[in-house]
Amino acid sequence: MTTVFKRPESLKDTETHYCSGCGHGIVHRLIAEVVDELGIRERVVGIAPVGCAVLAYEYFNFDVSEAAHGRAPAVATGMKRARPDLIVFAYQGDGDLAAIGMAEIIHAANRGEHITVFFVNNAVYGMTGGQMAPTTMLGQKTETTPRGRNALGEGAPIRVAELLAQFDGVKFVERCTVSKPRNVLKARAAVKTALSLQIEGKGFGFVEILSPCPTYWGLQPRVAMRMIEERMEEIFPLGRIKEPAAEG
């Protein structure tokens, strides 16, 4: 018999603290699989955000640092500038990246830092208990938008991938999701493209991943996955927003 699927070496054999059906576990695994496949486990350095994925350094089986809330792209900049031979990625959620860390992500992207950013967008703050995120959908009820998010006064969801794609320093942007097997495999391919781009020294790569938060959406995990397809993808369309430039 041959093994079709087993835990990647880059993921520690440990239980995560994530809720049942949380997308972080899938995204962690995809990154770990690609790190293994590209053979970079011994020269990759990850950055864990503040948010639900704050403990990512307990799960990845390679070097990982924390960063203060939102500052991962600045920390990544320092790492990569000091040690260009390392493969540096930041793993960030929607509050971390698109609220408190908006300045850091925009400027790291605009400088075209040779780093990779994985942005897990679940449209809500998880760690603090389900408050509004910059990517919360209009009408979506959260702890701090009890009547549903209203564009007037609360703003409309921010499309980060489109925002970053405009910068010349940004070489690859794709939005994907983990809603069903086919999409998970596409997300895996995007993770691979982004990390390969860095290995080839081509510039800033960004992958946004729409991910479920069954707990704070108040939905069964299976239903939460359908919610991504039925509602989130309308606001955050899937696909490649910026292609990596052709050779030469």
Partner: peptide, 19 residues
Amino acid sequence: TGCGLCAVMCPDVIIEVEK
């Protein structure tokens, strides 16, 4: 059939598939 789609979706990485 050993397609592995169950493992592809598992957020807790507790499924192994062989065929």
